[in-house]
């Protein structure tokens, strides 16, 4: 970074002469040190996973969750400064509630992502604040059913409402990633944090946009595997795998964002470790071949 020490990196709201906001770039650094988070979107839903670095052996295993729910149908996971992430989640919950108060329906995932993108961007504008030290992955399933207005009584005709377009599908799974600059995009697969490079490489190998879509259960297994692949055993501390998922109304979570059940998670993790073991065995074989040359 050529302009470090020139004073342009000391505050938000001041650009460097070459058009950069250094505070935002430093915030990205904070993210790059955090445990890997990923999100996978498939036809049946969304899976979120995080490599929760165990900071101390005195912490209770399985406690202090890193993935949070917003409303009922949206999940948030983030890499970087955990307190910033907590605040992000608080704000997201406030946004979801204010949406419900006005429109009496759950907030669509896209609208939440948009509002939170705007919120994070605002923290890049002012002298008095610093940008968020997190990149957040927001996954949700907007109901594909016709949901009633909150508190609704009564009903329409028993033959169903007239004039609908029956071919048009509504709702579905959504996945967004929001960066410290406030930039956000929709993704098929998203990764951030320490192991993002390896994780992204793995995600790109998956067929997430094609017609042959993977099942939600497969996505859970892939998520577990990718977190393990992205983890650097030699250098990194121990970690816990935390995973959550959201399916449609007819799927396993019935449209809600919940933790992946223990049995499924453990099975996915066992498979992940097995696969990892196999590939490292292969590597060892190859290297021993080389020795013989």
């Amino acid at each position: 970074m050529t302009s470090i020490g020139t004073g342009y990196d000391l505050a938000n709201s001041i650009f460097s002469p070459d058009g950069r906001n250094f505070q935002v770039e430093y915030a990205v650094k904070a993210v790059e040190n955090g445990g890997t988070s990923i999100g996978i979107r498939c036809k049946e839903g969304v899976v979120l996973a995080v490599e929760k670095v165990v900071a101390s052996k005195l912490l209770k295993p399985g406690a202090n969750k890193r993935i949070a729910t917003v409303d009922r149908h949206i999940g948030v996971v983030y890499s970087g400064m955990v307190p910033d992430g907590r605040h992000f989640v608080d704000r997201a919950r406030d946004e979801a509630r204010s949406w419900r108060d006005t429109f009496k329906t759950p907030i669509p995932t896209a609208d939440l992502a948009s509002r939170m993108g705007g919120y994070m961007q605002a923290y890049t504008l002012y002298q008095s604040v610093r940008p968020f030290g997190i990149t957040a992955i927001v996954g949700g399933f907007d109901s594909e059913l016709e949901a009633p207005v909150d508190g609704e009584v009564g009903r329409g005709p028993s033959v169903g409402a007239g004039g609908k377009n029956p071919d048009k599908k509504h709702g579905g799974p959504f996945l967004y990633m929001i960066e410290p600059s406030g930039l956000y995009w929709g993704y098929y697969g998203a990764a951030t944090g320490k192991g993002r490079q390896a994780a992204k490489a793995e995600l790109e190998k998956l067929d997430l946009k094609g017609g042959a879509d993977m099942s939600l259960l497969e996505a859970v297994k892939e998520a577990a595997r990718i977190i393990h692949v992205a983890h650097d055993d030699s250098n990194d501390k121990e970690f816990e795998l935390e995973m959550s998922w959201i399916s449609g109304a007819d799927g396993p979570t019935k449209g809600r964002h919940v933790e992946v059940p223990k049995e499924i998670r453990e099975e996915a993790e066992r498979l992940a470790k097995e696969l990892l073991q196999d590939s490292s065995d292969e590597d060892n074989d190859k290297s021993s071949d080389k020795m013989e040359e």
């Binding site: 009922r72 509630r97 508190g151 919940v258 933790e259």
Partner: peptide, 24 residues
């Protein structure tokens, strides 16, 4: 007022669930 209370309780239930990621 019933509808108001119903919506209020719905929000209460959502907030309540925030403390329990594992519902079952």
């Amino acid at each position: 007022d019933m509808q108001y209370l119903d919506r209020h309780l719905n929000e209460l239930a959502i907030d309540e669930a925030y403390d329990h990621l594992t519902p079952d």
